[in-house]
Design a protein around this nucleic acid. Sequence first.
DNA 1: ACACAATAGTTGTTGCAACGTGTATCGTCC
DNA 2: GGACGATACACGTTGCAACAACTATTGTGT
Lengths: 167, 167
Amino acid sequence: MTTASTRTVRKPRFDSLFQEAYLNLWRTYDRLKVVEDELFVRFDLSAQQYNALRLLEAAQPGTLPTLALGTKLISRAPDMTRMLDRLEERKLVHRERKPENRRVVEVGISPVGLSLLEELSGLVREGHKRQLGHLAARELKQLIELLQAARDPHEEPGGRWHKPPRD
Amino acid sequence: MTTASTRTVRKPRFDSLFQEAYLNLWRTYDRLKVVEDELFVRFDLSAQQYNALRLLEAAQPGTLPTLALGTKLISRAPDMTRMLDRLEERKLVHRERKPENRRVVEVGISPVGLSLLEELSGLVREGHKRQLGHLAARELKQLIELLQAARDPHEEPGGRWHKPPRD
DNA sequence: ACACAATAGTTGTTGCAACGTGTATCGTCC
DNA sequence: GGACGATACACGTTGCAACAACTATTGTGT
């Protein structure tokens, strides 16, 4: 990540502060993701599938249209259909088309899905603590604030991850 | 990402500050990654392949053993062989085994690879500016500091991404 | 009433990530 | 000198991400 240099420094060198920040973000996410993956692999689940189940849990007893669920996910999911295929195959979610608009597929969490989330609840909480438990509340809030500022120009206005204006 | 709630708030709700921080990290990385991918896709390159080329550029005219290159990468790469296969196929890198130890494969960047990096140089710099150019230097440094603190317990001691002790 | 645009989801396909196992080679110990 | 453990890389395989095109349905405009 550095241009050719005769200096024998062993720490990374960066082209710009912007690049340094982004590579730190990438590296940090990569390191912490490992902790999360270790947990979810035991349940044969990806972090994104877990995310989807949580969103459906929040919507119940209601359901969410496929597209709406997709926009609420933390990370991009260009193939919602297959993702939901796999969750439905395990009976974690149920899907149906309403007669009012047969283009739309409504997705809901199933009792099996709710049970799985119940089982995961404490473990996920512990996992996040293992990831970031060494930081103080003040540092965490600061980090959140800066991450929000960092990505705001890249969020949809009005989107759920868009920072609301401060009065 | 929230437990079942009758409150109709539209913003995400979190189980803990740790979870909130991690999900913000995930979301921010996901949003900024899109900007980077838009650039690299034009050169039929992944961010990780670009990272590898930069590391080899830094090492030249020397080379790096496959394993050493792997440990320097920003994100985990469990199959270095195939990743390097693809780079070698495009003549961006060259590989050789030394007679001293025929287990080890030394990897070096090729003139074609150097040309590609030259071509990408300004574009990558601009890309990072598009990602994070809206933040002030003070905010970027603060973000970097916090990201380092966040991941330090998850880094190898002595590793290149491990924060060196401050005196 | 019909044509066409827009919307929502599905499908075909390719490339690759990732895991686990296998192979070749070197280092150590007896 | 040979057995065995360790190291480095290669390979077989599966699952899935991602892109683009397709299909079905609804909404709009004339």
